[in-house]
Amino acid sequence: MTQEAMAWFEEEDEIGVIRCSICGVAVDSVEEALDCEWAPFFYEGNDQHGPACAGCSSALMKMDEFGEMEIKEEYRGKIHYLDEPLEDDGDYVFMGAIYN
């Protein structure tokens, strides 16, 4: 993991709960996120987002030529991140997961 990623996780650890920026699933600590193979950050074009749970990472992302996680081309521009406001266009698609 890069130093930038570790620094991000350390900042989030001070906040407490860490939530996936795509589906909203949460873990209680940095250690739990690392154990569950979360991506601390990723790119959609030049825009940095994060974190992302292992499920969203494996389904929606790939490693780029620089070793950074990026959204697969077929999903670019189609994901609504939880930290962004909804546009009022009437079409909404939400992705979620339920774990028992």
Rank of each mutant, 00 (worst) to 15 (best):
G55A: 14
E73D: 01
P51H: 00
P40T: 09
D64F: 12
C20Y: 04
P40A: 07
C56V: 03
H49Q: 08
I98P: 04
M69T: 00
Y81L: 01
I71E: 08
D47P: 04
F9H: 09
M63L: 15
L86E: 14
R19K: 14
L34E: 07
C23Q: 04
K62F: 01
M63I: 06
A97M: 00
C56M: 07
K72Q: 09
G96C: 00
G16K: 01
E74K: 02
R76A: 11
G90D: 10
E12V: 09
R19F: 12
I18W: 00
E4S: 15
C53A: 13
D28K: 00
E73I: 08
I15H: 13
M61P: 06
Y81I: 10
A5E: 15
Q3C: 11
E12S: 10
E68N: 14
K62L: 05
G67V: 05
E14W: 11
G77P: 00
C56L: 06
D88T: 08
I15V: 04
G50F: 01
F9N: 04
V30Y: 05
G24P: 08
D28A: 11
D88C: 14
G77M: 05
A97L: 07
C56E: 03
I15C: 04
E44Q: 09
D83G: 15
A7L: 05
E11F: 03
A33H: 01
D89C: 09
F41P: 05
I79E: 12
V17T: 06
K78N: 07
A7F: 02
N100A: 14
L82C: 03
C20T: 03
W38C: 07
A33C: 06
A52H: 11
E4Q: 11
A26I: 01
E84H: 11
W8E: 05
L34V: 02
R19L: 08
E87M: 14
E70W: 00
E32Q: 10
K62V: 00
I18Y: 13
A26D: 10
A52C: 10
W8M: 15
S58R: 02
A7E: 12
V93M: 06
P51M: 08
T2Q: 08
D35S: 12
M6S: 11
A7Y: 02
E11C: 02
G96N: 02
M1E: 14
E12P: 06
Q3F: 14
E12R: 10
D83E: 15
G55F: 05
M6K: 12
E31P: 10
E44T: 00
M69I: 08
S57T: 10
F41W: 06
D13C: 09
E32H: 01
R76C: 02
L86N: 14
S29T: 01
Y75V: 03
G55V: 03
V93S: 13
E87F: 13
D91H: 15
E12W: 09
E65S: 09
E12K: 15
D47S: 15
S57N: 05
L82R: 13
T2W: 09
K62A: 06
P40Q: 01
T2H: 13
D64S: 04
E65W: 09
E37L: 08
D83Q: 09
A26M: 00
M95K: 11
P40I: 02
L34I: 06
Y92N: 15
G24S: 10
L82F: 11
F94P: 06
D35I: 10
G96E: 03
G16C: 07
I79W: 00
N46Y: 07
M6E: 11
E4G: 12
M1V: 04
